[in-house]
Design a protein around this nucleic acid. Structure first.
Length: 406
RNA sequence: GCGACCGUAGCUCAGUUGGUUAGAGCGCUGGUUUGUGGUACCAGAGGUCGGGGGUUCAAGACCCCUCGGUCGCCCCA
């Protein structure tokens, strides 16, 4: 029989183990703890949604919808998409479950998302985010609440000093539309000096020219009309209330008038926590207000704000997580004592002590193997059962369990 | 979708301008030593050099294609 070629992992997916997995789990555990402190309810959502959930809400012209979604037809002929982001699915769940009755809702989710992109540092085809949203709250206090939570999360993860909060407002719909029109007019007047990338942005997503990295574009982008000149009084007041709230809560922020969001649904507050420690992927946590989204999905006008952060990106920024080590490692020095070892293992584990044993390989090298796993204590078992422990430090709990067994 | 670099043992890598049976360390298995908190030594297993095609008397080294990886562009968390 010919040896078959082992299938490879799908490009852009990860098999996380060891340190990478521990970092990942630590980020999720910290998020789960912090979101409870802020009274956000957990949520479990499907990974697949009808394609329309995303195409209607993100904007047909966005890169995510036009070329990055994993979409397929299922056996019933429906177009299904692996979620490329959380917000649209949350909005869909809010509508289809009649959760208007609970508004305002503070919700949190985490899990895998899928985008067909070229893999890169901090960017994968299956990636993972933590996500927090407040749906049905029109007040700037909701924006503040989310930002304060994000700030605390980053502090608790110990990465706040390398990360800064950049804040901007995109205004309400009239402000944003007027600004956008002015930008298109302005950039059209300077077409000749723009980079090729920016010329195509001009067609699809003119706001993106503002944060172009091309040096050719910088002078033009820097001199472009600013949103502040187009903000309605209401929009100004809203942004002022957000910044005042952040100041009162002690959250540091900087204004970045060129900060725009990639997806069409954002209004008013837009923000990113950015770092320079992740190569090209500067954004660690980003979000904003999306008051128009739920209407786009056929629901009633519903104000909402939210943010999402890449778990892998956060995991790369945090300090090494102390690895979990086994408390009691049994070394079976003589196979005749296997029954004693089984019994002791079960008793330890039932008493809440993590335990494992080494009973294979050369009997003389078992002790060395146990030592290499650096357990808190090594329990020696021979044909007569447990007869001694090596270990130091605070293993009082273990000692008392062993005594109770004696 | 575009560009650059990379792909040799389970892991990290070496392999001279192409030249016999492809190497090391770690890990793994066994043994000797030591004799109870990571000892030292010996031996062994383990590789279609990512895959396919080509150039050549000869390819792990050169060329083409392809699949992966990494990092940029784009986009985004």
């Amino acid at each position: 029989m010919a040896k078959i070629q082992t299938p490879q992992a799908v490009r852009g997916t990860q098999d996380m183990f060891g340190e990478a997995e521990e970092r990942f789990a630590h980020v999720v555990a910290t998020f789960e703890r912090v979101r409870r402190l802020y009274g956000f309810k957990g949520l479990q959502l499907p990974v697949i949604e009808p394609t329309a959930v995303f195409s209607r809400s993100l904007g047909e012209a966005t890169d995510v919808v036009s070329k990055e979604m994993y979409s397929f037809e299922d056996r019933g002929g429906d177009s299904i998409t692996l979620r490329p982001e959380f917000t649209a699915g949350i909005a869909r769940a809010y509508l289809t479950n009649g959760w208007q009755q609970f508004a305002p809702m503070k919700l949190s989710v985490h899990g895998p998302l899928f985008r067909y992109e070229r893999p890169q540092k901090g960017r994968y085809r299956q990636f993972h985010q933590i996500d927090a949203e407040i749906i049905g709250a029109a007040e700037p206090a909701a924006d503040v609440e989310l930002l304060v939570m994000a700030d605390q999360l980053l502090k608790e993860l110990g990465i706040d000093d390398g990360v800064t909060l950049q804040l901007n407002t995109l205004g309400d719909t009239p402000s944003r539309d007027a600004w956008r029109a002015a930008l298109v007019g302005y950039f059209n007047d300077h077409k000749g000096a723009l980079s090729e990338d920016s010329l195509s942005r001009l067609e699809k997503n003119p706001l993106r020219i503002l944060d172009s990295k091309d040096p050719k574009d910088r002078p033009i982008a820097d001199a472009a009309p600013v949103i502040d000149d187009f903000l309605s009084g209401e929009a100004q007041d809203f942004f002022g209330a957000v910044t005042a709230g952040l100041d009162a809560a002690g959250v540091a922020w900087t204004r970045n008038a060129a900060l725009v969001r990639g997806l069409d649904y954002y209004r008013h507050t837009a923000f990113e926590f950015v770092t320079d420690r992740l190569g090209a992927q500067g954004t660690v946590l980003g979000g904003g207000r999306y008051d128009g989204l739920i209407e786009n999905l056929g629901g009633p006008a519903t104000p909402a704000v939210g943010w999402a952060a890449g778990i892998e990106r956060l995991g790369m920024l945090i300090d090494a997580v102390p690895t979990q080590q086994i408390e009691a490692m049994i070394v079976l020095e003589n196979d005749a004592g296997l029954g004693h070892a089984f019994a002791l293992l079960r008793q330890l584990r039932q008493a809440g002590i993590s335990a494992d044993m080494i009973a294979t390989g050369s009997p003389k090298k078992r002790y060395d193997k146990a030592v290499k796993q650096s357990p808190a204590a090594i329990l020696r078992v021979n044909e007569d059962g447990y007869y001694g422990m090596s270990g130091e430090g605070n293993n009082d709990r273990l000692k008392s369990v062993l005594q109770s067994l004696a």
